[in-house]
Each structure stands twice: as C-alpha cells, then as structure tokens.
Design a protein around this nucleic acid. Structure first.
Lengths: 261, 261
DNA sequence: ATGTCTTTGTGAACGCGTGCACAAAGATGG
DNA sequence: CCATCTTTGTGCACGCGTTCACAAAGACAT
C-alpha cells in the first residue's frame, strides 16, 4: 500500500510477489504457535488451515522462497520459521520511532507485539511540551524538536505516525529528511513521499466504512430500488442531503486516526 | 479481507468491485475536504491527485456508481459526497460495540472518527470486573456477561474485537451468535466465522513485518549472496538460529494486537 | 448555430494473483 | 528392491483489477 505520488510497480523484490510477502507474517505466526507446542513438521494442508488460506496458495508462496519441504512429509517447522524470519528481515534489530503520543500512540508504545520479532521502540515523539519527559511504556517522551536527533542517533529507518491528520505530512517530511525510508501511517491523510520511501496506511475509519457497505448490502436488497432514482428526484434531494451530510460530519479529517488499508 | 473458513468469492455486491469499495472512503474524505472549502466542482484529475490514485481508475470507480459527472466540467462535489455516502451506507446510523477495553480499545473508544460518519459507540465490553462501570470516553464499560444483551438491545451489527488473541475467537463466536454480522478484528488471530459474516483484520505486527521486508531489500542487496546459501550451511545454521528466533520471540500471539492487513 | 476545447465514460489489452490438477519426489512397508 | 501411499512443487487457465487511449458529450465563445 505505497501511497506515494509516483506509481511504484508493485515492488516484486527479487521475484517474491507482494501478495506473498503480505502472507508470510501470517504463516510465521502459525508456525511460531506450532513451534511452541514442539510440533516438528506440518503439511501444507494443516498450516494453510491454521493461517486461513488455500493450501495450494501456501505451497506456491513457499516455492518463491525455495524448496523447503519434503514430499510425503511436509515442512520442518523450526527450519521454516527461520527461513521466513530471515526473508522478512526479522533476524535483525529494527529501531522504530513513534510520533504522536495520544491515545493511539500510547497504545502502540505499549503494544507487546512491538518488542518481539526484532522491533524496538527507540523513541517517542510528541509536539506537546506537557508530555515531554513523561514516560510512556517506560520510555520518556521527547519533544518534536528532537525528532531528527532521535532518528539519526538510533539509526531509525521505520517511523510510525500517530498524529492528527493536519500534522502528518509535515512529520512525514521531517522523518524522511532525517533518513526514515518506511512509514506506517495512522493519520487519515494521503502522504506524499519521494521515491524509495514505503508508506503503509492504517485507517480505522476506512475499515468501518467498508464493513458498513457490506452490512448495508446484507441488510437490504429492497433498498436497491431507490438506487436508480430518477434524475429529477436526485437533483431535488441533492442540496438537502448534501447539507445534511456535511453538517453532522464533525472534524473527521483531524482525528488521530487508527487503521490499515 | 474476509478471513472466513470458506472461500468467499470477492463479494462483488451489485457489480461494484471490492477494490472500488475500498477506495470510496478515500474519495469521500478528499471530497469532504473540498466541500468544507466550498469548492463546487472537481475534475477527476484533481480529485485523483488528492486521493493519491490514478485519474482513470477514479473515473472507472465512479462509473460503477453511475454517471455523476459532467463532461468538460467535472464532478459536483456536494452531489458526489451524497452519492458515495449513500452507497457506503453512511446515511444511516451504525451502532458499534467494542470488546476489550485495554490500551487499544480505549484508544478506539476515544477515536473521533468513530462518532462522525454515522458510527456510534453503543457499548464497551471488557472481561475485567475492575473496569466494569468505569467510564471510558464517557461510556461506562460493561462486563462480558452483558455482551449479548448489549448487542441485542442496541441492534448492533458491527463489532470491534480488541482483546488478546486468546480470547478473540470466543468473543467472536459470541458476537456472531448475538447477531453481529461484521467484525473488525485487532487481535492477531485468524477468526473462523460462518458464511455471511464479514471479517476485516487489522494487525500492526504484520504491517511492520511487511515494511521490514522492503526495508531489508532496500538496505542490502549484498545480503542476496547468503540467500542462496548451500544446503549444508543452511542445515548447520538451522538449529542455532531457530532457537534464537523462538527465544526472544516473547508473547507475540497474546498481545492485544493493533492493525490491518 | 457552429466550432473549439475540456473532461468524462469506457472498450480493450495487459499483468498479477488464485486455484486446479497432476506429475515428480520421497517416505514407508513388505 | 519394489510397490504403494502421501505430499510437495508447478504448469496452466481463469478472472479481477489496472491502465491506456479515445470517442462521445457537454460547456463556452464567437
């Protein structure tokens, strides 16, 4: 989900399809669970069920990494965990900086999944001077002025933006200028970044709207009638409802934002 | 991102492609911003730039909704806001229940974007008796025992799961049994749901891992050398690194979880 | 009215991702 | 050592989504 200005050709780095990369963490999670139960091997069928995917798809995904299975037996769990971890770059340490320590930012800082798998919260940044120095999840919050310093000192290449939408682009620019090349964006805005910088978007509002769409479809097919409402009626309803919509809209574009695409 | 057991054929309800539905909220956000600035019309080119997509794609997306543009002029902003809102089902009220009021659940409850666009937090649920009755974002937390009651009384059809992974499936089952047919899942688990129930997954850990993958690619192509490491060396490194990986893994599968797929 | 200019709406081609179905590979038992 | 059985790895076809490129439609000026 790179949202850059220029079109990025679905980064198939070294031949591994983007869709496959997106599923590797899923496999890894399932494999880790098996590993903890000391299960030595799994078949593609079993693992696929655990990961919630098709077994043929899983086998094809693994085939991009190499031939790590044994026919008639399945895959060695420990070995596969290692291979996928290495492929995802999880065998190294990834210092991360979180900008915007509001409700969401604090939740992220406290997120346990952060610490595991090689991700380490190197710094917390917030523009509010009242927060400066206060520890969140055991890490003292630093002021925005220290952003560049924090990024450079820790060799941070991954930044998380959890600020209000209005500040997101500016924060993004500063992160990128300081050397960050991957951004996880929770602010409800489209970020413009130069080539070579990856952006992934997480937007709760969008997720809910998509669910609402399907919910509406499920709830009433009888509403399909006024979908094809005549032009005259549509024009009539236009002003009335447009006002109504924007009226109770609230400050949507300014909330801290929450989720993925 | 329906993660059900059975394969769901990419729900193209009434002919609107899933990919288009996922972009509609993006357009809506851009249009709302224009509306607030009292801009009367936009061309597909301008709007596409604001939403960060290709203009041809945007036009095709809109063509699925109908012919709402005027050639030589563009699209009427207010009218389009209304049409998209209606298509997404945002003209009606959507009561939502949030289960699991930890760091993340609380952040979600406080999320401003919730209130706008027709989403209303109808109830907060948590298993911890210590939280029961305490207000979060102005809404008193109710105990898990009240889950079914809360869903039924409010006519909730959308549920948000922000519990630890271990509790997610059980909570999911109860939500579904109580009548919920759309679920936004923040727990790092694959949820099994019956047909007709939509699940969207939001998983911070996965997003970070995907970023790490690309980051690794960017950082070193010289590491490509040991990618094709000989079988012997691979086998040797196997145990060592496998142990290492699972050792500093931490309780990953149990954290409250955070994001999308 | 007529011509020009802008912008939409869409036909068609292309590429990626998915899933089927099967051959090859290896384990296992006799 | 051979036969059988299991499970991987993949060739192939299909369908969705994206993009190009252009004809049709309307605005606007003369």
């Amino acid at each position: 989900m790179a949202t850059g200005r220029t079109h990025r050709p679905a980064t198939r780095s070294r031949g591994i399809p983007e869709a496959t990369v997106a599923r590797l963490p899923l496999y890894l999670r399932a494999l880790t669970a098996l590993s903890e139960r000391s299960v030595p091997t799994v078949s593609s069928e079993e693992l696929a069920a655990a990961a919630g995917v098709n077994s043929a798809k899983l086998r094809k995904d693994f085939s991009y990494l190499g031939s790590y299975g044994t026919r008639g037996v399945g895959y060695d769990v420990e070995y596969l965990v290692y291979q996928i971890s290495r492929e995802l770059g999880l065998t190294q340490d990834w210092p991360v900086v979180i900008v915007g320590i509001g409700n969401l930012g604090a939740a992220l800082a406290n997120y346990g999944g952060f610490a595991s798998r090689g991700f380490r919260v190197a710094a917390l940044i917030d523009a509010d001077p009242a927060l400066t120095g206060k520890p969140v999840a055991g890490i003292p919050v630093r002021h925005s002025d220290d952003l560049e310093q924090a990024v450079r000192d820790n060799g941070v290449s991954i930044g998380v933006i959890a600020t209000p939408a209005g500040a997101a682009q500016q924060v993004c620019d500063r992160l990128v200028a300081a050397g960050v090349t991957s951004i996880l964006n929770f602010a409800p805005t489209v970020l413009n970044v130069p080539d070579g910088v990856d952006v992934r978007k997480v937007d709760l509002s969008i997720e809910l709207q998509i669910l609402a769409f399907h919910e509406q479809r499920k709830a009433g097919e009888e509403a399909a009638a006024d979908t094809a409402l005549p032009a005259a009626a549509a024009a009539a309803v236009r002003e009335q409802s447009a006002d109504q919509v924007s009226a109770d809209q609230g400050p949507d574009g300014d909330v801290p934002a929450v989720m993925p695409a």
